[in-house]
C-alpha cells in the first residue's frame, strides 16, 4: 500500500475575477517508508499541497489519501496518525523546550517517555537547553525542537514543509542526517525544500514549478534526464564571460554555477573548439572549458524553460 496517493489534485485561490492556480492537476504516489522530496521555489504550490494532505485545506478537484485514509472524509483518522511541521515556526515561543514537547505529546494522547526512543537522538542535542524558552533558541535548535514535537506521537507519515528554509548550511546538513535516521525507523517522510541541492538526499523527488509537477524521479535519474552535453566554463572575468557566452550564436543556455558557468550548446553545433575560438576572439584570459555532469538545478532550469 502507498503511504500517500495524490490523484489529479487541483487547488485555486482568489475570486472569480482573478484566479490563482496553486496546484494544477497534480498526481503522485509515495511508497511506505520512502523519503520523498517536493522540490521547487516559493510560490510553486508546495505549502498548498502539504495543507491538503494534512487535511487543513480542501482541494477543488481530485482526491488524495494518506495512510489509506481519504483526506476529506477520514480527516479525523489522519489527524491521529500523521506528524506535521509547518513552514513557519509554529511552537509556543513563551513556553520552554520541555513544556512545548510535553504539551504536544499530551495533545496527541501520548507521553514523552512512551516514544522517547524515536526522538532521543535529536532531543539530546537540545536537552541542555530544555529550560530555555523556545523563542530564545537559534534557528537550528528551533527546527530540531519542532521536529521532536512533530515526532513525539510516533506518526506513520511525517510532513515537513520547508524545514530548512532560512537555516544555515551546517544546520541544514544536520537536519538531513536526522531525516535519514528517521527513515531507517520506517517512517514515511514527505519533505519540501527550495534548495535544489537537497534533492540528492531524497529517495525520489518531484520537481514542482507554478503548481505543476515537471518530473518525478530518483535524484540520479533526474540528472540523467538532462538533455544535451554540459560544459563548465570559467575565465578571469566571470561576469563578462557570462554575458559573452549568452551572446554566442550556438548557446542554448548559460547559467552561473558557483565558480563556473554551465554552458549548453545547441545540438551538434560548434563544439569545444568553436567556443574557445569565440572566447579568444573576445580576449578572455585564463579560459577553462571542460565537460561537467549536470546537477538537479541544471535539469530544473531546463524543465522550466521547456514548459
Amino acid at each position: 500500500m502507498n503511504a500517500i496517493t495524490v490523484d489529479h489534485i487541483v487547488k485555486t485561490y482568489g475570486s472569480k475575477k482573478q484566479v490563482l492556480t496553486a496546484l494544477d492537476d497534480i498526481s503522485f504516489e509515495v511508497k511506505k517508508g520512502e523519503l520523498f522530496g517536493i522540490i521547487g521555489p516559493d510560490g510553486a504550490g508546495k505549502t498548498s499541497l502539504f495543507r491538503i494532505l494534512t487535511t487543513l485545506l480542501l482541494a477543488e478537484g481530485g482526491t488524495a489519501t494518506v495512510d489509506g485514509y481519504d483526506v476529506v472524509k477520514d480527516y479525523k483518522q489522519i489527524r491521529k496518525s500523521v506528524g506535521y511541521m509547518p513552514g513557519k515556526f509554529s511552537l509556543y515561543q513563551d513556553l520552554s523546550v520541555e513544556e512545548n514537547l510535553e504539551f504536544f505529546a499530551t495533545i496527541f494522547n501520548t507521553s514523552i517517555d512512551q516514544n522517547y526512543d524515536l526522538i532521543k537522538d535529536i532531543y539530546v542535542q537540545i536537552e541542555p537547553f530544555k529550560k530555555r524558552r523556545a523563542g530564545k533558541l537559534s534557528g537550528g535548535m528551533k527546527q530540531k525542537l519542532a521536529l521532536c514535537c512533530a515526532l513525539i506521537h510516533k506518526p506513520s507519515v511525517l510532513f515537513l514543509d520547508e524545514p530548512t528554509t532560512g537555516v544555515d548550511a551546517v544546520s541544514r546538513k544536520e537536519f538531513w542526517d536526522m531525516l535519514k535516521d528517521l527513515k531507517k525507523q520506517g517512517i514515511t517522510i514527505l519533505v519540501s525544500t527550495p534548495y535544489m541541492d537537497e534533492a540528492a538526499m531524497c529517495d525520489r523527488v518531484a520537481l514542482i514549478q507554478s503548481g505543476k509537477i515537471m518530473s518525478i524521479e530518483t535524484p540520479e535519474n533526474i540528472v540523467k534526464e538532462f538533455e544535451g552535453e554540459l560544459w563548465a566554463v570559467r575565465s578571469a572575468d566571470m561576469y563578462r564571460l557570462l554575458n559573452d557566452l549568452k551572446q554566442y550564436k550556438y548557446t542554448e543556455s548559460c547559467n552561473s554555477f558557483g565558480e563556473y558557468h554551465h554552458l549548453l550548446l545547441t545540438k551538434n553545433q560548434g563544439g569545444k573548439e568553436g567556443v574557445l575560438k569565440y572566447l579568444n576572439e573576445l580576449s578572455h584570459k585564463n579560459i577553462l572549458l571542460e565537460h561537467t555532469a549536470p546537477n538537479i538545478e541544471d535539469r530544473f532550469m531546463q524543465l522550466m524553460k521547456n514548459t
Partner: peptide, 29 residues
C-alpha cells in the same frame, strides 16, 4: 526561496550595480 532562474537574474542585477560602482554587501545561505 527564489527559483533558480530568477536567482541568477537577481545576481545579474547585483553584477550590474557593482559594475556601476555600487558596493554590494550581501548575506546568503
Amino acid at each position: 526561496g527564489v527559483d533558480p532562474v530568477t536567482r541568477r537574474e537577481f545576481w545579474n542585477l547585483i553584477y550590474e550595480a557593482a559594475a556601476k560602482g555600487i558596493t554590494v554587501f550581501v548575506t546568503t545561505h
